[in-house]
Write a protein that binds this DNA or RNA. Structure first.
Lengths: 134, 134
DNA sequence: TTTTAAATGCAACTAGGTTGCATTTACATT
DNA sequence: AATGTAAATGCAACCTAGTTGCATTTAAAA
């Protein structure tokens, strides 16, 4: 069965499996780039209300199904997969041409020496440039 | 004369020296942390209109008097000084307690290996944690 | 002093996202 | 299968940050 994985994931995370959630999750599982609200809304066959979609994105993020990315464009983007723990953060590459956002797993370590008295909890890096498709 | 530096800077950048600009610039020169629109509005003695203030921030940024910082809070912040060139970017430290944004000059180099086909133009890093005052 | 391009103030607008509340639905219980 | 109920949905109204069009004012060059 096609949705099997997605449905199982919802169950496992304690989320009710509604039509919208299954469609949304399935979409995330097949897309390899980060998705904005608009991307998602137009990808959903069964249109969801704006508030419903945003609330589901929040739920998915809370249980670690997706992580939210701020690419400095002013619109939040979301990608499949849990938000990484400190030390394992990945950078996000934003193409200045096609606007696509890529998760750059396994990149150089995100280590920074901060001045004494400062304590680092999380490092978020965004790299702007031109992607391989542009 | 007190404003001398600020006034000279405006002149040098080819910007007319209006009351608001002189006050704004002076404020930037004395603040060591990044300032949001609200910070600036309440700091200005001679209140400026919202659009005027935003337009001046844009002008200042364009000529390199200040640089804009996206700290992932949803509100832009601005700090004195030109936006650094590639290779000299500085990270921004955001205190999760007091929300203060610090420019971390002279921190570890911001180098990342990107996959082949990708070309890096700019690296923006934000470090979240607790600052020395909290 | 006059001229004029740039700066300002005002009001209206936009985009992205959130909230309150009535209705509907998933799904556990009987 | 019928029922109860908490959670999910849809709708409308709202919010915040920032932008825009346009009439008025002002810095500063002539």
């Amino acid at each position: 069965m096609k949705n099997e994985n997605g449905v199982q994931l919802l169950e496992q995370k304690g989320l009710k499996k509604t039509k919208i959630r299954v469609a949304l999750l399935q979409h995330f599982m097949t897309m390899e780039h980060a998705q904005s609200y608009n991307d998602l809304q137009s990808a959903l066959v069964s249109e969801a209300d704006k508030s419903t979609l945003y609330r589901n994105l929040t739920s998915f993020e809370q249980v670690g199904i997706i992580h939210r990315i701020n690419d400095h464009s002013g619109v939040a983007k979301y990608a499949f997969g849990e938000s990484p723990m400190r030390g394992n953060e990945h950078a996000h590459f934003v193409c200045e041409c096609c606007e696509t956002v890529y998760c750059m797993d396994g990149l150089a370590p995100l280590q920074f020496e901060v001045p004494k008295g400062f304590k680092t909890n999380k490092v978020q890096t965004i790299i702007k440039g031109i992607c391989a498709h542009c």
